[in-house]
Design a protein around this nucleic acid. Structure first.
Length: 635
RNA sequence: GGCGGCGUAGCUCAGUGGCAAGAGCGGGUGAUUCAUAAUCACCGUGUCGUGGGUUCGAGUCCCACCGCCGCCA
C-alpha cells in the first residue's frame, strides 16, 4: 500500500481559530480523504504552535498561566476539527514533551554537522510579527521606528544568539528547485522562492534570550529555540523522529504535501528544507501554498469583527455544504473571497438543483415503477454509449486533477458530469417510457442514471462525506468506496432496496435570507479617515416611527412605517426584534440614513437604515434629545 | 525602489499567434412535467486596461503608460 503523508501548518494559539485556519484544514482533509479512498495509507497531521513571546504576552494579558492558556486554545482547535469532522490522524502540540525531545535531537544533530554557531544579532524587533528587521527595513512614523508589516512600534535588540548556517544550503536548495519543478506550488510561489535563492540566503538566528517561553537550546539553557525552528520540526516530531518509537517516521517520511498559507512559504520552502538537509533527512515532495481568504471582500481580522466562526456556517448550512462551497468557489491556490451569498448560490444551484434534484427525480421513478428496487438493466441504446464515454472521461480527469491538487477544477469536472446526467435523463424521458409501458428500456435508463449518481457520490466523497454516505445508503450500495470502484461501471446491484427519501439539500430563498453576520464596514486603523465631502454624502435624518410589526419567519426583523417629514413616509426594516418589541418602537424619534440604496429583506423593501449603538448583546436606538420635527437633517 | 503577475461578457474566470473570442453564474425565450417553481434546449458585436510596434495575421509576442496585486528591498 502506498503511503501518503499530508500536513497543515500548526496553528498559533494566540487567537481563536477562524474561517482561514478552517479553510486550510478542510482542504487538507479533502486531500487526505481522497487519498484514502484511492487506497493510500494516509497520515494526516495538524496541530498547534504554542511557544514564543506573543503567546506569552497574550496569556499574561488575560492573567493566565501560559501553559493553561495554551491548553485551552489547543483544545478549542481540537474541538473545532472534531466539529468539522476533520480526519486528522494525530494532533501535535509543540509543548508536548515528545516534541521537545525531537526538537532537542534535531538541533543537536544540526550542531554535530557544524551548522550552528554563536554570533551576535542586533536589529529591530516587532513583537507582534515575531520578526526582526534591519535598519533600512523599518519605517518611521512620528519619530518612532515601526514594523514595515504591521506598523507597530519596534524595539532595538542586541542579543548573543545561535545561528543556523542557512547560507551553506543555498546551492543545494537551488538544485532541489531545478530538479523538482513541482516542489513548490503554485508556480508563481515557486518563482518567488527561486528569486530569493538567486539573491542568496543569509544565516539566521535561531535562538532567543529575552524570554523563556520556548524549548531550551541544548547545552545553553540561557537560550530558547526560536519559535519558527521549533514549529517546523513538528512535521517530524509527530512521527517520532529522534525518539525510541520512530516507526511512523520510517513509514511516512518524507511528507507528500505540506499544505500551507502563502505567508509562511519561505519557512517551508527554504528554511525547513535546509534544516532537513542539515540533519540528513529527505525533503518533502511538495509544498503547496494556498491563498488567503477574505470575508465579504475584506481581510480577516478580529478588529473588523469578521473573524467568523466556521461553526456558525456549518450549523446553518451543514458541514458538507460549507466544504463544497470552499473547494468549489475558491480556486485552490489563489486568494478567494468567502461570502454567504455566494455560498447560498452554490447550495441552491449546484447542490439542490443539479445534484440533489437529480437524485430525487431518479429515485422517485424507481420508487413508483420498480417498487423501490434498483432495476435490472438490459441491452443499451439511446445515449447509453455516450454516457459510458462521458463517465470514463470524467473519472479520468477527476483523478488527474485531484492528484495534482487542482481540487476546484476536479469539482467542476464532476459538475459537468452531473449536468450530463440531467441531460441524459431528459433526453431518454423515462416518464414517457413508463407511460408507454416500455419497462425494459425504462429499467436501463434508470439503472444507468443511478450508476451515474453513484459515481458522483464517490467522486464527491472526499468533499461531502455525509452526503455521499447518504446516497450510498439510498442506492443500496453497502460498502465504502474501494480502489477500482470509481473506474468500474456496474457497481449497483439490481434488486436491492432503494430509498427515495427527502431532498438531499434544502434550498434557501435568496430574498428570504438573513446573513449570519453583517460585516462591520470599518477599515483598519489609519485607513478609516473620510473627507467632509464623503461624510456629507450620507443623508442623516430624524424620523418618527408610526407603526411597527414583526416580520413573519424572521427572528430579528421588524418592519416599520416611518415619517421622514419632507421626504414623506417610508418603510424600513431593521434587525431589532431581539431588543425591542414593536409596541416600544412606535412613536420613537430615531435617526436614519435616508439615502441608502434600498434593500429587500424577506420580500419587504427597506428604504433606509436605522442607527443604533451596539455592544455585546446590548443595543440602543439613537434618538434626539427633545422634540424636533421629523425630516430634520443631521449635521 | 527592484523583480514578477494580473487587467477578457453584468459577476467569477478559461483562452499553445491563425477558423467569425469561450465556460459557469445571473438574465431572457422556448420545451417539458419524473423531480426541490426542478431540468433540458436556445439566446452574448464584449474598445480582450490605454497607446504604439513586430507580423500576412495579436487577447496571445515587444515597448511605454494607467490601475490592482504579490515577492524582495
Amino acid at each position: 500500500m502506498k503511503k501518503f503523508y499530508i500536513t497543515t501548518p500548526i496553528y498559533y494559539v494566540n487567537a481563536e481559530p477562524h474561517i482561514g485556519s478552517a479553510y486550510t484544514t478542510i482542504m487538507a482533509d479533502i486531500i487526505a480523504r481522497y487519498k484514502r479512498m484511492m487506497g493510500h495509507d494516509v497520515f494526516f497531521l495538524t496541530g498547534t504552535d504554542e511557544h514564543g513571546l506573543k503567546i506569552l504576552q497574550s496569556a499574561r494579558r488575560k492573567g493566565k498561566d501560559v501553559k493553561e492558556f495554551c491548553d485551552e486554545l489547543a483544545l478549542k482547535f481540537e474541538k473545532l476539527w472534531e466539529d468539522l469532522k476533520i480526519t486528522n490522524d494525530y494532533f501535535v502540540r509543540t509543548t508536548n514533551p515528545e516534541h521537545e525531545q525531537t526538537v532537542n535531537f534535531f538541533v543537536r544533530k544540526m550542531m554535530e554537522n557544524g551548522d550552528i554557531y554563536k554570533g551576535k544579532y542586533s536589529g529591530w524587533y516587532c513583537v507582534h510579527c515575531e520578526s526582526y528587521y534591519d535598519e533600512d527595513e523599518v519605517e518611521e512614523i512620528d519619530g518612532k521606528k515601526v514594523c514595515p508589516v504591521c506598523k507597530r512600534e519596534v524595539k532595538w535588540v542586541e542579543e548573543e544568539n545561535y545561528f543556523f548556517r542557512l547560507s551553506r544550503y543555498n546551492e543545494a536548495l537551488k538544485k532541489q528547485f531545478k530538479e523538482n519543478p513541482d516542489f513548490v506550488e503554485p508556480e508563481f510561489r515557486r518563482n518567488e522562492m527561486l528569486k530569493i535563492l538567486e539573491k542568496g540566503l543569509k544565516d539566521i538566528s535561531i535562538t532567543r534570550t529575552t524570554f523563556k517561553w520556548g524549548i531550551p537550546f541544548p547545552g545553553d539553557e540561557e537560550h530558547v529555540i526560536y519559535v519558527w525552528v521549533d514549529a517546523l520540526i513538528n512535521y517530524v516530531s509527530a512521527l517520532g523522529y529522534g525518539r525510541e518509537s520512530d516507526d511512523r517516521m520510517r513509514k511516512y517520511w518524507p511528507a507528500d504535501v505540506h499544505l500551507i498559507g502563502k505567508e509562511i512559504n519561505r519557512f517551508h520552502s527554504l528554511i525547513w528544507p535546509a534544516m532537513l538537509m542539515s540533519v540528513g533527512l529527505d525533503l518533502p515532495k511538495r509544498v503547496f501554498a494556498h491563498g488567503w481568504l477574505t470575508v465579504n471582500g475584506r481581510k480577516i481580522s478580529k478588529s473588523l469583527g469578521n473573524a467568523v466562526d466556521p461553526r456558525e456556517f456549518v450549523r446553518k448550512y451543514g458541514n458538507d455544504v460549507v466544504r463544497y462551497y470552499l473547494v468549489r468557489d475558491i480556486v485552490f491556490g489563489k486568494d478567494g473571497d468567502f461570502s454567504e451569498e455566494k455560498l447560498v448560490r452554490r447550495l441552491n444551484a449546484d447542490l439542490a438543483n443539479d445534484y440533489g434534484n437529480l437524485v430525487h427525480r431518479t429515485l422517485a421513478m424507481v420508487k413508483k415503477h420498480f417498487d423501490s428496487h434498483v432495476p435490472k438493466p438490459s441491452k443499451s441504446g439511446g445515449m447509453d454509449e455516450k454516457l459510458l464515454e462521458k463517465t470514463k472521461k470524467t473519472v479520468n480527469s477527476y483523478i488527474n486533477l485531484m492528484d495534482s491538487l487542482r481540487l476546484t477544477d476536479a469539482m467542476e469536472a464532476v459538475w459537468g458530469y452531473v449536468a450530463f446526467l440531467n441531460t441524459y435523463f431528459d433526453r431518454e424521458r423515462p416518464w414517457v417510457l413508463a407511460k408507454r409501458g416500455e419497462k425494459e428500456r425504462l429499467a436501463t435508463v434508470l439503472y444507468n442514471t443511478l450508476e451515474g449518481i453513484l459515481k458522483v457520490a464517490m467522486m464527491t466523497m472526499p468533499v461531502m462525506p455525509d452526503t455521499s454516505r447518504e446516497v450510498f445508503k439510498r442506492l443500496g450500495f453497502p460498502e465504502e468506496v474501494k480502489p477500482g470502484h470509481l473506474e468500474f461501471w456496474g457497481s449497483l446491484k439490481s434488486g436491492v432496496h432503494a430509498i427515495h427519501g427527502k431532498p438531499l439539500f434544502r434550498k434557501i430563498e435568496m430574498e428570504k435570507f438573513e446573513k449570519i453576520a453583517e460585516v462591520k464596514e470599518v477599515e483598519e486603523k489609519g485607513e478609516n479617515i473620510i473627507t467632509t465631502d464623503e461624510f456629507a454624502k450620507v443623508d442623516l435624518r430624524v424620523a418618527k416611527i408610526l407603526s411597527a410589526r414583526r416580520i413573519e419567519g424572521s427572528e430579528k426583523l421588524i418592519e416599520m412605517e416611518i415619517d421622514v417629514g419632507e421626504l414623506g413616509k417610508r418603510t424600513l426594516v431593521g434587525g431589532l426584534a431581539k431588543y425591542y418589541t414593536p409596541e416600544e418602537l412606535v412613536g420613537k424619534l430615531v435617526i436614519i440614513v435616508a439615502n441608502l440604496k434600498p434593500r429587500k429583506l424577506f420580500g419587504v423593501e427597506s428604504q433606509g437604515m436605522l442607527l443604533a449603538a451596539k455592544k455585546g448583546s446590548e443595543l440602543k436606538l439613537l434618538t434626539v434629545e427633545g422634540e424636533i420635527a421629523p425630516g430634520a437633517r443631521i449635521s
